[in-house]
Design a protein around this nucleic acid. Sequence first.
DNA 1: GGTTGTTTTTAGATTGGTCTAAAAGCTAGA
DNA 2: TCTAGCTTTTAGACCAATCTAAAAACAACC
Lengths: 357, 357
Amino acid sequence: MARDESPSRGHRESGSVTLQDIAAHAGVSRATVSLVLRASPLVAERTRAKVQRSIKSLGYVYNRGAAALRGSRTSTLGVVVYDIANPFFGAMVAGIDAALNRVGYVSFLANSEDSPKRQQRFLERMREHRVDGILLCPAEGTPPTLVETLNAWKLPCVQVLRHIGTPPFDYAGTDFRLGVNLAIDHLVAHGHERIAFIGGHTEHSATRERWQGYREAIDRHGLGYQRLLRSTVTRRDGFEAIGLLLGESPAPTAVVCHNDLVAFGAMLGLQRQGLTPGVDCAVIGTDNVEEAALSAPALTSVATHPYAIGEEAARLALRRINHPDGAREQVVLSPQLKVRESCGACRTASRVLAPTL
Amino acid sequence: MARDESPSRGHRESGSVTLQDIAAHAGVSRATVSLVLRASPLVAERTRAKVQRSIKSLGYVYNRGAAALRGSRTSTLGVVVYDIANPFFGAMVAGIDAALNRVGYVSFLANSEDSPKRQQRFLERMREHRVDGILLCPAEGTPPTLVETLNAWKLPCVQVLRHIGTPPFDYAGTDFRLGVNLAIDHLVAHGHERIAFIGGHTEHSATRERWQGYREAIDRHGLGYQRLLRSTVTRRDGFEAIGLLLGESPAPTAVVCHNDLVAFGAMLGLQRQGLTPGVDCAVIGTDNVEEAALSAPALTSVATHPYAIGEEAARLALRRINHPDGAREQVVLSPQLKVRESCGACRTASRVLAPTL
DNA sequence: GGTTGTTTTTAGATTGGTCTAAAAGCTAGA
DNA sequence: TCTAGCTTTTAGACCAATCTAAAAACAACC
């Protein structure tokens, strides 16, 4: 208004160039510039070109915050995981990032450190930032009502890897039950009859599913031996668990582990007693972290697919944002068994190969 | 205005509760509510309490986007790394997250995959979101002018781990030169005289510093033998490099590696030839990833401190945001040598210990 | 030339906070 | 009672976009 055209201050002193400035420079209205920015088909080609030129020459930067205030989207997503230092989550975040990048979204990342309190703070903060949605790997001990709370907040939420609350909800993860079944089928095919399972402590879904898979597979094969050892899931737990199991009679001839860390610990425990994993006792892990191929002996592991899970989760979130009332969707990817040395099935071959994977 | 008090629609149909609503409910002005929200000392205690009660009872959610539009801060930071799947960066991001969380900041995370183009897109996107600052681990091949560009954008930027451009700039990283020196001092103390260095390809600062450290240490100890093998930095590179070096005469008796992955590859290469790392040839890595303690033999490694680096970087960024014109600061943490089996110094001890670290 | 129907463009309200400058309420001293 | 000097409170402009509804421009037809 009082600004008119004073060419001397093409780049204003105050700071950033706004729609107003572009409009003045191109001799059109603010509304028209806004339409050009959003590639609206309403604008005539000549006008569009003229405006584009002004945008270039004034060095305009779109202000997404201002746009979000009037519009309804922020083009941001919140991602809350419980242990970003775990390489599994690194890969998953990479998958999320790739999928979001394709549609111009950008994501806030927060690390709950498995503390429901921290997690709660982060969710509130993201709500204040008006994220369009949340990808949540619920921290251990998350109240089951949290999903309802998010619903009440009208914040689309996709659970990842673990889930809480009762269906229907959006979820992306891997089929832990199937994973344990694959491992046990393989062991049984190689003659094992006493197979134990190590790890899993509190009751979240990812643990429950593994246990289910274990019991189910043992039953299916009609094995008389069943031994499920609860524990937290660090390397030390694996180390201690294997010591305990070997002291029992009968002792298992094979163990399936909650994750690769536990499996590494179990292998160390065997070696400490002068035993060789894969020869004296088979060991199978879960996750197939990069180092599984690397340890000695190389660890047989159930490969989940963190990158793909991340991509799927992001895809679900975007769909939910665009269709708030569509049917909830649960994507469960199938894991694969990566057979290496520690299960005893290919003792000779792999050690002399060049490193793979 | 036309809204008056119609108690029937205390929670409005349209969506969120605003300052306006709180003000009406508490019988004060919008401005006063805003002051209460920001804990201003201007507000009388009685008023503050009354407003707080209204905020609670209406379920108000602060809109940071709207606040940022008028104010000057968004309380957000952009973090751009080149490989989030690498556990090192996982730990670093955890450190950043912890430091930011303390001051109510939240961060956008982007994964450049070492592509300057992707990196550029991310930076532009973050600029549009008006982040208060950037933490940047520059992708390989980043034009040295990028830092100046960010300066021109008036976007505070702290470089992490690698740096480009010419000082002064803000930077947080580790002293790679010292790290290599520590490794070589240790080897020399144990009688080694022919020590090679494996890895590092293109010219970014983190590679240059390692090479400098290598040459410097070799000179300092007056060793006649010097062998620096360039390569990319995967396990396969280590595997191939050790093969090459062992075929030379004289062959080295010890190798220091660009990172732990390369070192793992070198160990596999030795084992493939029937040699034992730490006995027939010493191997030392860099990064001290979790798995270093785990491999067989356990890998001696130069421990950098990713979590601490992340915290420092975040601290620098916050300082720069609050003091745009203060002196640039470079924080360089000192690495430590973690002695295990692969360097031959404690062959007997560690194998029988319970797993540590 | 006037009417109708498209295609383009625009004025002005709106979003939800912050900020400035001034007004309103107090208290105490003359 | 009046005034000076606090402490509190507030009206209204402002930030930078989007959105709605209507106006303007243009073409086609009778």
